[in-house]
Structures are given as structure tokens and as C-alpha cells.
Amino acid sequence: MSGERDVAQASPRRIYRWDLDKTYLQTEFDSLKDLVRTALQEAHEKRAVPGAAALIRELRSRGDSWLAIVSGSPTQMRAVLQEKLLLDGITWDEFVLKDNVRNILRGRFRALRGQVGYKLPVLLESRLRAPAEAQEVLFGDDAEADAFIYSLYADLLAGRVDDRVLSRVLEEAGVYPDDQARVRAAWKALPPADPVRRIFIRLDRRTPPAAFARYGPRVVPVFNYFQAALVLMADGELTAPQVLRVALELVQTAGFNLLMLTNSFQDLVRRGFPVADVAHGLVQALEGPDALLAALRPVPDIIAAFSNRVAALGATPPPLPPVTVDYLALLADALPGTHKGRRQP
């Protein structure tokens, strides 16, 4: 596919890792009917999650990043998925899908639904190819075990998980011995680093955000990609006009309005994410000459709406404290199916 860039020649400052189903694409696979329909869809019939394409485009616009896609979709869907990304104006650097035909042929039925044994080695092996200084932002959803796997990946890289915990996780998650060996080999070969800055979990199933509190503030559950963009702006990854362009896509394609944007903003403030200060930057960008942002005016209304949302809270909640993730206590999140019942901590 022409969308794939030559990874070996790139030297990224940032790596953005994205899941596809329910993270980038609005995919339904809760029933057999959904699965069949998804499998038969052509590229132009697939729908991206509102704001996802705009967010990726803005993240990639500086040209110093990798986009690594790791999806549980079967390899047979590669062409149609890649075509969809290209239709949305997105190019990628890595594109890994799950070879479930191979799993079936080898009688590895646990691997059909298992996520840890699939994604963890892929992530670690991909990291082996990345420059040591490259930092990462990961995007997943609440339909599978993304929060668990991404956090484990981050803490393995940073040396915050020991071999005993890893072994127990791999065993409990039913990871096959050869995949366990891949995980260990890649992990051992990687130099110690702490590159994962954020893990965004899109709340496709509207899982209560507190269910992710035990992963700490690095994991940011988001209801929409405007929220992700706000946090990324606070982190210095995006500028205010870029955030507003994500908002614009939500307004134009998903029926978002000022109330929904300000509610999304306030939701993050209430959950202790440090976005209250980005409002000033957004206002400045709105007052600027960017013609694209005309749809988001009138500016005074927007300024008042954002200010009111913060003022309504009285005091701004304190930032979230760092957390040491107890992976053994969270093992249920890693098992296929059990995370679907996740409701509260």
C-alpha cells in the first residue's frame, strides 16, 4: 500500500500507536451479524470515529512522528482498512493485523480472542525498531484490554514491572509459550526508558471513567477526541488551532455543538486532568485569522461558555496523583470478555 512509509529511514520524535476497531473506526462486532457486516463493508462504507482522522492528521502534521497501527482485525481486511485510512488522508508507518487464520490452523484457539498475547509482543518488537529517545502516545478503547496492555507495555519499558509479575500476567492471560518468549526477548533487548507519555482510552462502551483510575493519570479515558486533543495541548503535543480543527470536525461531522464541547472540557477539568489552562490558548486561536475556524464563532459566546464551565466548579480539583499499577489486581481486565463487565473500581 502506498500509505506505508519506510520506517527504517525515519527518525521520529513521537510515536503514535492506534488501535483501529472502536478506536479509529466505528466498528460493531458484538454479534455475529455485526461481524459479518463489518467483514463485508467496503472502505467507503466504513465510518471513522468523529474527530479521529482530524486528530491523527494534526498529530502527524509536524512530520516527525510515526503512526503505528496495531489492530485485532484479521489480516484479510488489510486492503480495505488501508484504503479507508487513505480515503481519510492518513498515512502510516506500521500496520499490524492479527493473523487469525494462522491461529486456527495451528489450533491456537485461545489466541483468537486473547489480546495480551497478540498486542504485547507486537508493541515491544515495534519499540525495538524505534529510536530510544522517541516518546509515545497510545490510543485504544474500552471494548478490549487496551488500558491494561498499553499500561503494561509502558511499565515494562520503564522497568516498573518485574519478571514475576510479567510471568503471572502472561500465564493468567493464556499467552502461548512462543508468544511469551517473544515478549521476553524483546523486553530484554530494549534499553531502559520511559517513553510513554499518555494512553488515551476512547469510551466506546461508556465505561465509567473511574474504572480506569487504578491505571493512574497516564491513562486518560475520553468520551471524544476533542478531549484527547485538549490533553495533548496541555502536554505540548498540539497547538490551540490544531485542537480547534479537531473540534471543527466534530461540529461538522458529528453534530457537536458549543454545549457539548464545553461539557467535554469541564468533564476533564473535573476529573483532574490539567486542561483548565489551555482555555486561554484556545481563545487566542479563535481570535486569530484562521478562516477554517469561522464555523466555531461567535468568539465571545465561546469564551463565555468555557469560562462559565470552569467557574461553575467553584474550586478546580487537584491534579491526579501518580499511581503504581497493580497488574495482578487488574488481571481481569486482561482476559477476553471479562473487561466487558467492567463498571467500577
Binding site: T207, P208, N263, S264, R271, G314
Partner: peptide, 24 residues
């Protein structure tokens, strides 16, 4: 606000459609 957020964090909801106004 604190009581509302503690409750809201535990239930499924649509954050885009909810705002909180603190009244002590």
C-alpha cells in the same frame, strides 16, 4: 461537586451532555 463527581465516575454516562454546577 465532589459528591457529584464521585457518583458520576461510577456510572455509564454521556459526558458531552453533562455539566456540573457546584452548590455547597
Amino acid at each position: 461537586g465532589a459528591a457529584i463527581d464521585a457518583s458520576l465516575g461510577k456510572v455509564r454516562h454521556q459526558a458531552e451532555r453533562i455539566s456540573v454546577h457546584h452548590a455547597p
